[in-house]
Design a protein around this nucleic acid. Structure first.
Lengths: 268, 268
DNA sequence: ATGCATCGGTTCAATATTTGAACCATCGGT
DNA sequence: ACCGATGGTTCAAATATTGAACCGATGCAT
């Protein structure tokens, strides 16, 4: 692993739950020498990627990310485009919708939209981490990822978030062919007890799966009717999202009923 | 310079104007060897900090920044807090307000707020770059920066953005004591021809100047009355912003009339 | 108060990584 | 068919990285 990669990997230890980390902790977490971490963090700090705070001299993520995220979004308005689709999706379904991107071995939430139709709704946050094995979005991504990646994920210990979480690798493997055939995954209470989630993978220009779009509803509100509506609208929204992001579903990806999705001349 | 710094510095060549850069261009821009750039960009790409696009294999900023920016903002809601102040400021003054952060030798815009009082207004964008010598915000920051930093900035060639831009280092040096005394800088047409800008520095917990808050109005709309109002409100808003961000103005920073800003018991 | 364990930070010789000139294969324009 | 550009690759030489040990300071328990 190159030096630059080591420095960058240090940034992955910062999370929603742990936003500040001391030098020694960071050395322990990363398994690197303290002197190494010290030097690398110093370089990251020079560029505004981290900053040291207060007495404990702990590190936290720096302001440079705001600038670079703004530039990224200006160049590739993923979040904006996804949010436009999610807003429509939430209005149509009356439920929370969100989109997340694959980042290493987990998904992290890109953006989301709430519906204001009901008194209760599934909550969501930016940069929220979703595991691949225990969420609808994760299963959707897993199903359309290379076999080697799937094996790598499923060979690690799978945490049971709820009593309903499927943690048997073989059982998860058995789900994937169905998900591939449907082009959609679902998870009932696998991550949060009361959440019924549908998810469809999103692809890039090389037909690689880069994330998923999902609709999450309280289990108690799910009916056959709502399920059918979510599935229909989500499939359309996800397909549009892949397209507006400049991506293409792989050839193996199931087509939607042509009456719902008329063939369009493909430009650019 | 360490290897990690070299990798990180490559990210600085991406801008609003140039969002995609090829390998050879990047090598030329950075002065590094092509093989070095190739390897470093590969490492950045592995972590999602850049991605390669299409046929030309050009690089652009990656999606990882969206995630890390969301985490940063969750940990330190600078943008959110600043925007709250800017919104009030724009409503009060009827003009565009913005806040920018020092990044190396330039300011980059953090966030902004438009007023909707007039048919015309000064436009602003996220991550827009403001030079230190030619903008009100830049002068405000410069005046409260270490002498060595000021000298470094003013010893480089100063670009004249408009005929009104002051590009004589000595003339700029002469402005700084007044700015320090007032705690506020202004620039009339120095960056964009028709923009009259007032700016106040923002400080961190160590009383270092980290950026500036500013109000930008069309020159044609400026009156003595408006100027007085902007100066009063901006001074207050900037002071509040420094405080809510956890910072402190240096002892040398001019105090506002105590009837406007009653002493508060300082907690945390 | 005393001692112990931890913290952030620093040092320097041993070591592993980075570097860069030269080299491909490929593409597009002349 | 050529030329000059591109992205990508190689390998010995040069250089940056590494990590155990050390430092002073701080905090916690005895």
């Amino acid at each position: 692993m190159g030096t630059a990669s080591k420095a960058l990997s240090l940034l992955n230890y910062f999370s929603r739950a742990q936003s500040q980390i001391g030098l020694s902790d960071l050395a322990r977490l990363s398994g690197m020498n303290k002197a190494t971490v010290y030097r690398l963090m110093g370089e990251l700090a020079d560029h505004g990627f981290v900053e040291q705070v207060g007495a404990g001299r702990e590190y936290r993520l720096g302001p440079a990310f705001l600038r670079l995220a703004a530039l990224r979004e200006k160049a590739v308005p993923m979040r904006e485009l996804a949010l436009a689709e999610l807003t429509k999706l939430s209005e149509l379904t009356g439920e929370t919708s969100h989109m997340s991107l694959l980042n290493g071995e987990v998904l992290s939430n890109l953006t989301y939209s709430y519906a204001h139709k009901h008194g209760t709704m599934v909550m969501m946050e930016d940069a929220e981490v979703l595991e691949l094995h225990s969420t609808g979005s994760g299963l959707a991504v897993l199903a359309f990822s290379p076999a080697s990646f799937i094996d790598a994920i499923l060979s690690k210990p799978l945490v049971a978030r709820t009593p309903e979480t499927v943690t048997d690798p073989a059982a998860i493997q058995a789900l994937l062919p169905k998900i591939r055939k449907r082009g959609m995954a679902w998870s009932i209470g696998g991550y949060e007890r009361d959440v019924y989630s549908h998810a469809v993978p999103i692809f890039d220009a090389g037909s690689q799966c880069i994330g998923a779009m999902a609709v999450a509803a309280p289990v108690s509100r799910m009916t056959d009717e709502l399920r059918a509506m979510i599935q229909a609208e989500l499939a359309l929204a996800a397909r549009r999202t892949t397209r507006v992001l400049g991506g293409f579903p792989p050839d193996s990806f199931p087509k939607i009923n042509p009456t719902d999705s008329p063939v369009e001349s493909e430009l650019t």
